[in-house]
């Protein structure tokens, strides 16, 4: 089971935030096929949000084929976004490498903002390059 949270200042519509959090959890393997999402009542009681917003997010996830409501039982995950066991197995060594890299960045005198900027710009360049090669 996952717990939702809401960032009021992000400018992202609340239902989109909920969708993103489910997708994120699916990607990280926190949610697997057959897992149950929290009930609408549980979500609203936790984050003080309009029930229709939660329903809308769940409908959207259902439309994407990620979840399936079962009447009287709840909403269940039907598909995972993590690239299979192999990809999940790769998470751990990759995370170790990244931690090592972060340690070196800190040792070189970069602060949090520097690290974040460097990560995002590199990630962007990398994505654009790949997209360019494909296109």
């Amino acid at each position: 089971m996952i717990e939702f949270h809401l960032d009021a200042r992000s400018g992202v519509a609340p239902y989109l935030q909920l969708i993103q959090q489910v997708r994120h959890a699916l990607r990280l393997g926190l949610l697997k096929e057959g897992d149950r999402l929290p009930t609408v009542k549980d979500v609203v009681a936790r984050v003080a949000i309009n029930p229709n917003t939660v329903l809308k997010a769940y409908r959207e996830l259902e439309y994407e084929g990620l979840v399936q409501p079962r009447p009287g039982l709840g909403t269940f995950v039907t598909r995972t976004l993590a690239g299979g066991d192999e990809a999940i197995a790769a998470h751990e060594p990759l995370r170790r490498e990244l931690t090592g890299w972060l340690g070196r960045a800190r040792a070189a005198g970069l602060d949090d903002e520097d690290v974040e900027a460097l990560l995002i710009s590199t990630f962007r360049e990398f994505s654009e390059e790949r997209a360019g090669r494909r296109g």
């Binding site: 009681a45 936790r46 029930p51």
Partner: peptide
Amino acid sequence: RREFLQGLMAYAAE
């Protein structure tokens, strides 16, 4: 405020 709205929304949802 948050607790009040949580209770209210839980009731409305149910």
